[in-house]
Design a protein around this nucleic acid. Structure first.
Lengths: 114, 114
DNA sequence: CTGTATCCATCCCGATACTG
DNA sequence: CAGTATCGGGATGGATACAG
């Protein structure tokens, strides 16, 4: 079943950003334009293949802009679109939320188990 | 995890919320406390097994609180913790962002269907 | 009703090799 | 340098059966 018409936009956006890499790549790109090999250096553990696929996915979603200067050797640059930039603070907010979680463990939030 | 801890909290929080179901379950639970079978009805396409696993994951993360009234038949209720509640608007913001994306495509190519 | 365990198909992803 | 294609192992998740 490939047809998933999400009723909830949340479901869709999580499909896009949910994996391990998308948000990380966005994070690194928020720093400025980078080349393919720069991103490889930033993320030493991502495979060549996955970097390509993730970038393509983000590009298709309109989050990442790809610029191909085809000379030799080839040179391609990746950067965030405006939509991508707008996404950064939202992702950041999730990070802050997570930070507040680990700072104050869930134990303390349990209220009077009667 | 097997490897080093993520430098970026984003990476961690996405590992948690990234899949198809977590955010949806949180959405449904933001509505109020629900039983296992209620959630099954809300999400007709999730399998029994995955519902259990996802709920357990969210519970372990301190997002969901599980209350087991063990009578007969058994009855278990799920609800959001305070941390979970605080997460809702953040997820919502992502949904809004996504909504603004589809509303105004970055690339106006396909719009004109003459 | 809720939860656990098992089996098994599927898919994701890394490694590798090749192209321009 | 950047991208594509292919293969195979391992993780992921559905179906099912069973337990409390």
């Amino acid at each position: 079943m490939k047809e998933l018409v999400s009723r909830c936009p949340i479901e869709e956006v999580m499909q896009l950003l949910g994996g391990r890499w998308p948000s990380l790549l966005i994070y690194y790109l928020s720093d400025g334009t980078k080349r393919f090999s720069d991103l490889q250096r930033d993320n030493p553990t991502i495979s060549h293949k996955m970097l390509t696929l993730e970038l393509r996915k983000l590009e298709d979603a309109g989050i990442v802009r790809r610029t191909d200067f085809d000379g030799y050797p080839r040179r391609v640059e990746y950067g965030l679109t405006e939509d991508g930039e707008r996404l950064v603070p939202l992702i950041d907010a999730l990070g802050d939320w997570w930070g507040s979680m680990v700072a104050a463990p869930a134990d303390a939030t349990v209220v009077a188990a009667d």
